[in-house]
Write a protein that binds this DNA or RNA. Structure first.
Lengths: 96, 96
DNA sequence: CATCTATTTGGCTATTTGGCAGAATAGAGG
DNA sequence: CCTCTATTCTGCCAAATAGCCAAATAGATG
């Protein structure tokens, strides 16, 4: 059954996993408001820029964000916008 | 800013993280259909029972499931039912 | 109380992750 | 072509995770 589980739930689980880190979840929400460059996200998050870049590549690999070059900076945008709705659920947590 | 991110997104991220494993996501969906004992989940998943038990404790720690004893077995139920809706989003993945 | 069954817990190992610092890269602009 | 800036990549380390097996536990039941 294991292969089957991986087949059915693998990609979906990967998306959850990508969002399963406070910094990455914050980034997703921030990008939900407006497209933002790495440098600005770095300033907001407060981690090393290499760390933020790595978080972004995790989000991109999961298909949650993508990016585009603008001048000499890379602008990230939220590609899978519905993650914003997903969030509402967990937010009310134990409640409902 | 880091403390603030943790404060705002920490618990929510933990819920995503808990669902970020194919086996645990499968279990959540299965429990969405009906309450189930560890033994039966183990049979469905095909991992060692101790592994399944650990997955269940991760889900419980995140507030996603809870359990109740019935006879000599422990029945798990989906406590945070809205995770079933969350799933729909990721499922259509890159699409929307 | 002794035992049986279902589950959890405690190692243990291999792998993955998160973070930083520093090197490498890619365009922009002189 | 040189340099500057923004970003990504590579090593490195500490910590967390997934999985198995074996031991411990908790009720159920004789």
């Amino acid at each position: 059954m294991k292969d089957n589980i991986l087949e059915v739930y693998g990609m979906e689980a990967a998306a959850f996993k990508a969002l399963g880190h406070p910094t990455r979840l914050f980034i997703a929400h921030q990008l939900g408001k407006r497209d933002t460059c790495v440098c600005e996200l770095t300033a907001m998050v407060g981690d090393d820029i290499s760390t933020v870049s790595k978080h972004l590549s995790v989000l991109r690999a999961a298909g949650i964000v993508d990016s585009v070059r603008k001048g000499n900076q890379i602008i990230y945008r939220l590609k899978l916008r519905c993650v914003l709705n997903m969030s509402v659920c967990a937010k009310f947590g134990k409640g409902k």
